[in-house]
Each structure stands twice: as C-alpha cells, then as structure tokens.
Design a protein around this nucleic acid. Structure first.
Lengths: 189, 189
DNA sequence: CAACAAAACTAACAATTGTTAGTTTCATAC
DNA sequence: GTATGAAACTAACAATTGTTAGTTTTGTTG
C-alpha cells in the first residue's frame, strides 16, 4: 500500500485530468497542482509524462486481453461467451473508469513500442470478439444478417460505458450486467 | 465556391488532423504543412486555432439539432422517429466523418460561449431522444425494462459510427441504414 | 502594363512546455 | 544526535506553442 503508493496516486490523479481534457492538454504543472506539489517534484516518482500514459493504458489493455483469453479458452456457448465479455467490460469499467478514458481517446499518443503493443492487443481483442459472434451464427445460436454491425455496435456501447456509468448513481454491478446483457443481446438471439 | 473556399479547405484539413491526434496535439505548423504553406499564412484565412475548432463543431451540432427538431415536430410513431434519428446520424456521418471526431472528442476545448452553446445543444438532443423512447414505452410501441440503457447504448453506437464507417468499403447508405435500424431496434421492439 | 487584392512569405514575440540539476525539508533508525 | 532516504523545493534550460507585423509573390482586371 505504501510501496508503489505515491506513483499510483500520481497515475490516478493523471487519469482524472486526462479524462477531462485529454493527454496533450494536461501539463505536468496541472498534474502537480492537482497533487498539491510542484511539477519538478513529480519526477521523484515517475520518469516522464509518457510513462504515466503508458502505465494507465497498457495495464488496462492487458486486463482486457487476459479476460478475453480466458473467455476464448472456455468451452461455454457463444451466447455465454458474449455475456462474459459484457461482464468483463463492466468489471473493468467499475474498477477504473478514469483510466478507460485514456485507453479510448489517448492511445495514439503512446510512443512506438507501446503503441504497437497496444494496437496488437486491440486488434486481437476485436478479432476474438468477431470470431465468437461468427461461431455463434454458424451454430445457430445467433441470428444475424450483419456480423460486422453487431460487433461494432456492441463494442461501441461497451467502450462508452466509462462515460455513462459514473452518471448513474449507486447502480449495482450485477443489475447493470443483467440489464446490459438483456439490451445488447436481445436483438441478437 | 471560391469565397469561403480557402478557409473551408483549412477547416477540412484540420478536421482530419484533429481526428488523428486530437485538437491539442495538432499545431498550427502541422496544419500548415498539411496545407503546403507556412503557419503564418493560415492567418490570412482564419482568425485563430480556436475558430477552426468551433467552426467544425458548432456547424455539426446545429445540423444534429435541426434534424432532431424536425423529427420531434413530426407526427410519426415513436419507432418511426427512432428510425429517422438513426438515418440522421448516418447522413451526417457520411457527409463529415472527420468533423465528428472533433465533436465527439474535442468539444471540451471550445471556449466559454461556444462551450455553453454546445453543451446545451447536446443536452437538448439527449433529452429529446430520451423523451421519444419514453413515449414509445408508454404507447407500448417499445418494450423495455431500462430506458436509460437503451438511450445510452443506441447513442453510443451512433456516435461511434464515424470511426467504423470509413473502414467499411463502398457501403451503400441505404443498406447501412436498413441494417443499423435492424440491429439497433430489434432488441427494442 | 498598371493596379489591386488575395495569399503566400520571413522574422520574430511572449508564453508555455517537459524536464534536469542541485538543494532543502523531514521523519525514522541507529 | 547524527545519518539516511524519501520527497519536496527553487531555478533554470531548450524547444515548441499560437500569433503578429511587415513584406513579397501571384494572378486577374481595367
């Protein structure tokens, strides 16, 4: 709790600011002010502004990747897998809604290595998603004319959860999951 | 065609750059390079960087507001109105996908007056949307447990169209409308 | 060709950016 | 009470930012 404490505090504060104005518009002085210290003092805990961004994004992306891999490897039905994906998104969103803003809007400001790493994870994630839907259609679990639109509209909604969820007060995670599954899969099943 | 020609070219080029890196990360020198001129030369045609952003966003927001007002004032059924909203989003997206990136991601960088104006338009738009769904539920046209989730998930998908549509090749607007209406309303009706 | 306006240019500005170097503060351990 | 390490500070840097002023180029019109 104290080990990585100060760095994590900075990263958390940064995530909030990045969510409000975006990575590029937030200065190290803004961040320092939010932390109640001077800009130079931040560098006792972090290496660079870029490191803050990559810490936020890569950690989250790996969380999604790991969750998706578990779902893919399971032998659930396609519908069950889609439900688990929805559940995964809700879990991650409730745990770190601020960070998801950076993942969604500021990933392009990652530098070379992390950018490539992130883009690969995102591509794989989408491919896995698409494969699950495709399999579901083949197995007659999912009825659909247009797989691409299903994938796109579902992912759009899940990715935007981070904006919507904080505006709902005291919403229970399990009720939210049930409702989201109902709305997103009703037109599909 | 020539009057506002050069300014519109700049605005269009800016919209593409803003889409790629966001408003704050695009410099006037970036924009000038994209136009094949020097940064200072831009100011023969525009007043400020901020003016470019507000031109892009306010124009689009008014387009949505106008379209929504027409739909609200019509005496169509609730379902018909939802279909018209979907159609509106697709029309605007096909016409100006680049600008929609700024509207979605950089509206918070508008300054005071335009910011308030934009926020009001967005709020009204959402309220109108919500009212239409609510009315549909009351009239038993729409079956739903959770109006908020319907509004949120539908709007999320429509707002993200600008990212998805350019990746589909040669997609016909009318086919897209039909498919989107099918996917978005199937679970609702 | 002369005149004129549109649109480009060069040069520079004041402010802000991320970051570094070197120093001071302060609590804890010996 | 002195030593240690973490974490703050002051001061400054080189680069980049949006923008302005003043000048030159370009193309069209009489």
């Amino acid at each position: 709790m104290k080990q990585e404490g100060r760095k994590q505090e900075i990263v958390n504060a940064a995530a909030i600011l990045f969510k409000e104005k975006g990575y590029s518009a937030v200065t190290m002085r803004d961040l320092a002010t939010a932390m109640g210290i001077k800009a130079a003092s931040l560098y006792n805990h972090i290496q660079s502004k870029q490191e803050i961004l990559s810490t936020i994004i890569i950690e989250l992306a790996e969380e999604f990747t790991h969750g998706m891999n578990q779902i893919v490897d399971s032998d659930s039905s396609s519908i069950q897998k889609l439900e688990n994906i929805i559940s995964l998104h809700i879990d991650v969103t409730l745990r770190n809604a601020d960070g998801l803003a950076s993942l969604n809007n500021d990933w392009m400001h990652l530098e070379e290595d992390n950018l490539l790493y992130f883009e690969k994870m995102r591509q794989d994630y989408e491919d896995n998603f698409r494969q699950i839907v495709k399999k579901g259609v083949e197995m007659n679990e999912i009825k659909s004319n247009n797989i691409e639109i299903i994938v796109f509209s579902t992912l759009s909604t899940l990715r935007t959860l981070y904006l919507w969820y904080p505006k709902q007060k005291n919403i229970d995670a399990n009720i939210l999951k049930k409702d989201m599954i109902f709305v997103l899969l009703q037109g599909v099943v």
